[in-house]
Design a binder for these strands. Sequence first.
DNA 1: GACAGACTGCCTACTAGAAGGTAGGTATGG
DNA 2: CCATACCTACCTTCTAGTAGGCAGTCTGTC
Lengths: 205, 205
Amino acid sequence: MGMGNLTSTSDDILACARSLIVAGGYNGFSYADIADVVGIRKASIHHHFPSKLDLVRTLVARYREEAKAGVAKLELQVSDPLDQLRFYVGYWEACIADASAPFCVCALLASQLPVLPEAVGLEVRAHFRFLSEWLTSVLERGMQQGQLRLTSSPRAEAEAFMATVHGAMLSARAYGDPKIFAVVTGQLLVRLALRIPCDESHEAQ
Amino acid sequence: MGMGNLTSTSDDILACARSLIVAGGYNGFSYADIADVVGIRKASIHHHFPSKLDLVRTLVARYREEAKAGVAKLELQVSDPLDQLRFYVGYWEACIADASAPFCVCALLASQLPVLPEAVGLEVRAHFRFLSEWLTSVLERGMQQGQLRLTSSPRAEAEAFMATVHGAMLSARAYGDPKIFAVVTGQLLVRLALRIPCDESHEAQ
DNA sequence: GACAGACTGCCTACTAGAAGGTAGGTATGG
DNA sequence: CCATACCTACCTTCTAGTAGGCAGTCTGTC
């Protein structure tokens, strides 16, 4: 077929697999699960993605592309470094609140890295590096503009930022309470913004 | 048999299952995997733990007991709140560095909570609550003693602390580099300790 | 102290179902 | 006519879990 459907079957498969991975990781779903949801047969999935490895590698690669596109768009639309961080955190806050995608695919897969096919592991690692580098650049710029005050190097602070966001996703899931994500990440932002002078003592949400 | 072996077979099974879960989660291992490592047959594992649910529930329950015992011991041996946090972080730093247990069992299981048997999920959630409450009490005491200066409530700060530690485990695994854990958690401790006055500007590692 | 019975730990052998994957067919449309 | 998309039917291997046997060990009773 010459395409035409705005959402092709292979897109449906990828979207379904993504949400299944977000729920239970690489070994937490099967082709049968996808077939049930998408409404096709197992064999048809193999037509689009010969092996599970192909499916997940493609899925993560696409996820990374979307992340890169999202960041690029953010860089264009929002110039203020602190606002960029706010936007990034707010994006996840919304995803977690409406349960549409309550976890980062790569963060979840990273937790099971030892049992992942190597090709997938490499994609996952690449996402971490990308995110870390972007956050580093944002923090660096915020520092140079005197808007953010860091207590250690931009790189180290970026790693801490990323780790805290991932940990906040985990806690929100563990407690079954989306609000905990905002509680944790809110402090992150306040802490970075607070450091403008060293005068009055704000109280964080 | 009247016991006697310091390490019984069921202990071996639990220890093996724990390390397999740390590597790949609930669906990342099978009875066959355990049988291979422990050197018994699959059916013998069912003799000790009728179902996988039994095995993992027991394993997590024991893990929680160990954690509680560890914290109780820490409370006895170390009185200084900041030192307690240092010790806690140092414990994990060592586990990650020597790859003996490079992830918290409950943190890993929490990431797959949606596909976990409910009984296991409840144990996992209970661990998060326990850890959060302990950290809250430590931060609260440190604040009262004027040793730690918090920017938000002890509870919120405890959640952020826990999230950052878990996220640091994840990053260490994603990068395949134990050092990243220390880089992230080091800032956590410095930040809490730094806040004694609001005078000079230290530069963290 | 001998002995039956129960219990424990582990075994071989098996099951039903689910896993990922293949072979080969059919309908459709450029 | 050929490629795409999907199908039915099948295969192999792995999955958790079961049935039943066998050797040792602990216990109570004579």
